[in-house]
Design a protein around this nucleic acid. Structure first.
Lengths: 135, 135
DNA sequence: TTAATTGCAAAACTTTTGCAACGCT
DNA sequence: AGCGTTGCAAAAGTTTTGCAATTAA
């Protein structure tokens, strides 16, 4: 297997820097539209290719929540997400992990857990009162 | 808001019954191909429409793991999933929930958790030895 | 009878890819 | 110079939709 050289292009650098500024977990399209303002001839495929590249290198996270567009997060500290069904915002959930279940999977089932995702869906503080959904 | 009548068609009944027999978390396409053997003029859109219908009614789960095809699960008992990065199989993980984190989100953040997903990715017992990935 | 549902085909939407030109190293 | 990367357009893959015909209630 041959060593591959990776180049630091201005597009790649720009994409990572801008994503790091955002706490909103944007889609590729949202990023593209926003980036285009500062870098007018940036193309959609370059955005996708770099998001995939950065995800593969572990520099960003790709969150595929729904069937449609993935969302991206440049915060790679271990954390979970809360999706508000009311306003569609995504909240970061930081946690201290004392994790029985992971231990169970590794020790009892003899699997190896490489990573995990835990997604919560519900109503945030702001939306809780506004919904008719009282279940 | 008007009451809507839902009909029990033979396609809908068939789709739910067949999915219940499967423990393999198939995609819509896999289901369609398999169903077509027993119901030759079933159409792809009927499969999709009924999977969406059953999901909205809470009778099945739609698991959207990757960017691509959703997978479906007729086991609606609360459980998690383990995705084997080696063989791509999906294992059901049943758990007893004594859940600090959910409680934290509901009590400290004052959010309402409606449902949650926890997905594990790693190597199952069979694949653990075969991979070069020793991290 | 009538409105929900089906089957078919086309459309919609997200993401990837082929290719020539460009630009890091 | 060499080859990774870009921009553009076209393609690929998944899911939804419009519509006339069918069928459950």
């Amino acid at each position: 297997m041959k060593d591959r050289l990776f180049r630091q292009t201005k597009q790649r650098k720009f994409i990572l820097e801008e994503l790091k500024k955002l706490k909103t977990h944007p889609t590729a399209e949202e990023l593209f539209l926003q980036f285009k303002k500062k870098m007018p001839n940036l193309s959609f495929s370059t955005v996708y290719r770099n998001l995939n590249f950065l995800r593969d290198k572990g520099e960003i996270l790709e969150l595929n929540l729904g069937k449609y567009s993935s969302r991206y997060d440049a915060d790679i500290n271990q954390h979970h997400h809360f999706f508000c069904l009311g306003c569609n915002r995504i909240f970061d959930i930081y946690f201290s992990s004392n994790d029985m279940l992971t231990r169970h999977i590794e020790e009892k089932l003899n699997f190896k857990v490489k990573y995990q995702r835990r997604d919560f869906y519900g109503y945030c503080k702001d939306c809780k009162g506004k919904t008719r959904d009282k279940t």
